[in-house]
């Protein structure tokens, strides 16, 4: 089977070279050159000196953080509730099913729901609250993004909750823990791997939801993802676009390092 290894390896290596390494090298190359292909750090200088870019970066980070946080807030209890239901497979499927509807269709639905005479404003109208402009606000963007990402947070948390041996919960209760103590000291730490992969699955895509910022956030919400799209497809300044892209990659690496950091335990002398 030895010579066959090359047969399997070659096409795969070709793929890695062409679609993983080459694009990375190219985007890095573009970020380090100007429009005339001269080597320069000017793009990065522009990014870190201008307030606009830094504010944009902070904004993206903040939005992604909020989206991830609200997702976790909604999804964790839902996943926990799911572990106590009968027919869990069925209910889980109902949670997953909306992910099969194209993201843009769901975003499009909110254009109707959030419009000045849409469902939400009709509902508010019942209480005499006049039409509120919800579209093209931070709220609308964060709400829709959270809505879209919820299933991707419920899934990993549910899976990690299911892996907890029920005997551990009995053991905790046996040792005198109340429901909340069991949650805090046993369930939460043991489900952390699921929370972690949920955060990774949501935080990073949230940085690049440019279609949502365009459709729901109007041009008021500008994230790094929106900027990349704008520089590449509208203003055609690929060098600046690539620079923002490289910074996005760096942010992503930081998030991954932060969430997968191992905790150090202090030693106890007896």
């Amino acid at each position: 089977m030895k010579k066959n290894r090359l047969l399997f390896l070659l096409p795969y290596l070709l793929w890695i070279g062409l679609f993983v390494i080459a694009p990375l090298v190219l985007i890095l190359g573009y970020s380090l050159t100007d429009a005339h292909s001269h080597l320069t750090l000017q793009n990065f200088a522009a990014f870190f000196s201008g307030g606009t870019f830094l504010r944009m970066m902070a904004n993206s980070f903040w939005y992604a953080l909020l989206i991830t946080f609200f997702c976790l807030l909604v999804s964790y209890p839902a996943a926990l509730a799911l572990t106590r239901l009968k027919n869990q497979q069925f209910w889980l499927m109902l949670i997953i099913l909306p992910t099969w509807i194209n993201l843009l269709l769901k975003a499009y639905a909110f254009i109707g729901i959030f419009s000045r005479s849409g469902m939400v404003n009709q509902f508010l109208g019942l209480f005499g609250i006049g039409p509120v402009g919800i579209m093209f606000t931070d709220f609308a963007f964060i709400f829709v993004a959270t809505y879209i990402e919820i299933p991707f947070m419920v899934m990993p948390i549910y899976n990690s909750l299911k892996e907890i041996d029920p005997a551990l919960l009995s053991a905790s209760s046996d040792l005198g823990a109340s429901f909340w103590q069991t949650f805090r000291y046993v369930i939460w730490p043991l489900s952390w791997p699921g929370v972690e992969s949920g955060i990774q699955a949501i935080f990073i895509p949230s940085l690049s939801l440019f279609m949502l910022t365009r459709l729901i956030g109007g041009n008021r919400v500008i994230t790094l993802g929106t900027a990349v799209e704008e520089y590449f497809l509208t203003t055609m300044n690929w060098n600046m676009g690539a620079t923002i892209g490289v910074i996005l990659i760096a942010l992503m690496l930081i998030v991954m390092l932060l969430t997968s950091r191992k905790q150090h335990k202090k030693e106890i002398e007896l």
């Binding site: 190219l26 690049s208 440019f210 993802g225 990349v228 690539a242 892209g245 996005l248 990659i249």
Partner: peptide
Amino acid sequence: SPDVIIGAS
């Protein structure tokens, strides 16, 4: 990787 990065690169 974020989709925009994949797309752009």
